[in-house]
Simulated scan of single mutants.
Amino acid sequence: MELDKSIPCAVFGASGYSGVELAWLLHNHPLFVLKHAYSSSAREEAEPLAGLYPQIAGQLDIILQPWHSDLLPQLAQQVRVVFLALPHEASAELAPVLIKAGLVVFDLSGAFRLRDPHQHLQAYAFEQPDIGVADVPYGLAEWTILQGNEPLVAVPGCYPTAAALALKPLMHLVQGTPLINAVSGVSGAGRKAAAHTSFCEVSLAAYGVATHRHQPEICQSVGCPVIFVPHLGNFKRGILATIYAPLEAGTTQQDVDLALQRAYSAQPLVRLCQKPPAVNDVVGTAFCDIHAVVHNGHVILCVAIDNLLKGAAAQAVQLANMYFDIPASTGLTGRGGVI
């Protein structure tokens, strides 16, 4: 790699689970170079990121800095791309400032995902900021085309990534409302300690029934209403989704298989499986594994992703690869993960 071809990057929210996964992916990427890592709060003191995650000690020796607005001129001179792994409102506030400074932003929060302002307000309880762009790309990577001049790309949520990757190739065959049951590991709740996400407290249970903010995002992505029921499981990371969708009369297994193959035969990070995938098949990877069965006029889709990688950090890097006309899977085909 020639030094003048490297792409300098910064990660905001690097202390969180998705943020540290981003930092690790960028550190090991052949073209992206991690220059700065910022915490999500200006009240925190600078410290080595390895102090929070000892598993990267001696490998990623970057300092986690608190962000202050007076650092912006320096950041704009040293960095081209910024990844935001921040709370939704923090991203909404910071992204326009970074864009105005000429930086390219990949936002992992929900601040810019929903196109309908009313749906956004209802889901996130704050108004979506105007960044002067008519249409912010929704970056479901396998279904997105980037021109390389967009100031901001909205990275999808973890549940919507799993659900949409499975359903979108089949929507021309679906006749009715898909039902999505999905279970996530506790890392999906973030790093901040809370009793209800403690391993000692978690028991497999549904939550956010009919109220989860990812439901309108899934509907937007697949183009139809869905019933979505998320669950929290007592495992660290990963998502397993089981999706049931009624099919047009006469639809066969061959029709479904062909639609999936047409969609993903050239997509290296989606694997079509001969049996239902397990969470352990994808943990620590950027892959989405999909298995489909036609039964009694329905398609049953079993889908597995790593919520912190394909559902967050790895998809953000995949989109950045595409943005800079780098092969989409560059830096993403190994197995790892920090936490």
Results as ranks from 00 to 15, higher is better:
residue 1 M to G: 15
residue 3 L to C: 07
residue 3 L to P: 03
residue 5 K to Q: 14
residue 5 K to H: 14
residue 7 I to L: 15
residue 8 P to A: 10
residue 10 A to C: 13
residue 11 V to D: 05
residue 13 G to Y: 13
residue 17 Y to R: 10
residue 24 W to G: 01
residue 29 H to D: 12
residue 30 P to W: 02
residue 31 L to F: 12
residue 32 F to G: 12
residue 32 F to N: 05
residue 35 K to R: 15
residue 40 S to D: 02
residue 42 A to L: 01
residue 43 R to Y: 07
residue 44 E to V: 00
residue 47 E to L: 08
residue 47 E to N: 03
residue 48 P to F: 06
residue 52 L to E: 13
residue 54 P to W: 04
residue 56 I to Q: 03
residue 59 Q to H: 09
residue 66 P to A: 12
residue 68 H to M: 03
residue 72 L to S: 12
residue 72 L to Y: 06
residue 73 P to T: 11
residue 79 V to Q: 06
residue 79 V to R: 00
residue 79 V to I: 14
residue 81 V to M: 09
residue 83 F to V: 11
residue 93 E to L: 09
residue 93 E to K: 05
residue 95 A to L: 06
residue 96 P to W: 06
residue 98 L to G: 00
residue 101 A to P: 05
residue 105 V to T: 03
residue 108 L to P: 03
residue 109 S to V: 04
residue 109 S to G: 14
residue 110 G to H: 08
residue 111 A to K: 01
residue 111 A to V: 12
residue 114 L to V: 10
residue 116 D to C: 12
residue 117 P to K: 04
residue 123 A to I: 13
residue 125 A to W: 11
residue 126 F to N: 11
residue 128 Q to F: 02
residue 130 D to S: 11
residue 135 D to C: 05
residue 136 V to Y: 04
residue 146 L to Y: 04
residue 146 L to V: 13
residue 149 N to Y: 09
residue 150 E to C: 10
residue 154 A to P: 06
residue 155 V to Q: 02
residue 156 P to S: 10
residue 158 C to M: 09
residue 160 P to R: 01
residue 161 T to V: 09
residue 163 A to Q: 08
residue 166 A to T: 13
residue 173 L to V: 01
residue 177 T to P: 01
residue 182 A to K: 09
residue 183 V to M: 08
residue 183 V to S: 14
residue 185 G to C: 09
residue 185 G to F: 02
residue 190 G to F: 01
residue 194 A to C: 00
residue 194 A to I: 04
residue 203 S to P: 00
residue 203 S to C: 04
residue 206 A to R: 00
residue 209 V to E: 06
residue 212 H to F: 08
residue 219 C to T: 05
residue 220 Q to R: 00
residue 226 V to K: 07
residue 229 V to D: 02
residue 229 V to H: 03
residue 230 P to Y: 02
residue 231 H to D: 03
residue 231 H to N: 11
residue 232 L to T: 04
residue 234 N to L: 06
residue 238 G to E: 04
residue 238 G to H: 04
residue 239 I to M: 08
residue 241 A to I: 00
residue 244 Y to F: 14
residue 246 P to E: 01
residue 251 T to G: 01
residue 253 Q to E: 15
residue 255 D to V: 00
residue 257 D to F: 03
residue 257 D to Y: 00
residue 261 Q to W: 08
residue 267 Q to F: 08
residue 270 V to Y: 04
residue 271 R to T: 11
residue 276 P to S: 07
residue 278 A to C: 14
residue 279 V to P: 09
residue 281 D to L: 07
residue 282 V to P: 11
residue 283 V to T: 11
residue 284 G to W: 03
residue 289 D to L: 03
residue 290 I to S: 02
residue 293 V to Q: 07
residue 295 H to S: 10
residue 298 H to G: 00
residue 298 H to F: 15
residue 300 I to P: 00
residue 304 A to V: 10
residue 305 I to A: 01
residue 309 L to V: 05
residue 314 A to N: 07
residue 315 Q to F: 00
residue 315 Q to H: 10
residue 318 Q to N: 11
residue 319 L to D: 07
residue 329 S to L: 05
residue 331 G to N: 06
residue 338 V to S: 14
residue 338 V to P: 13
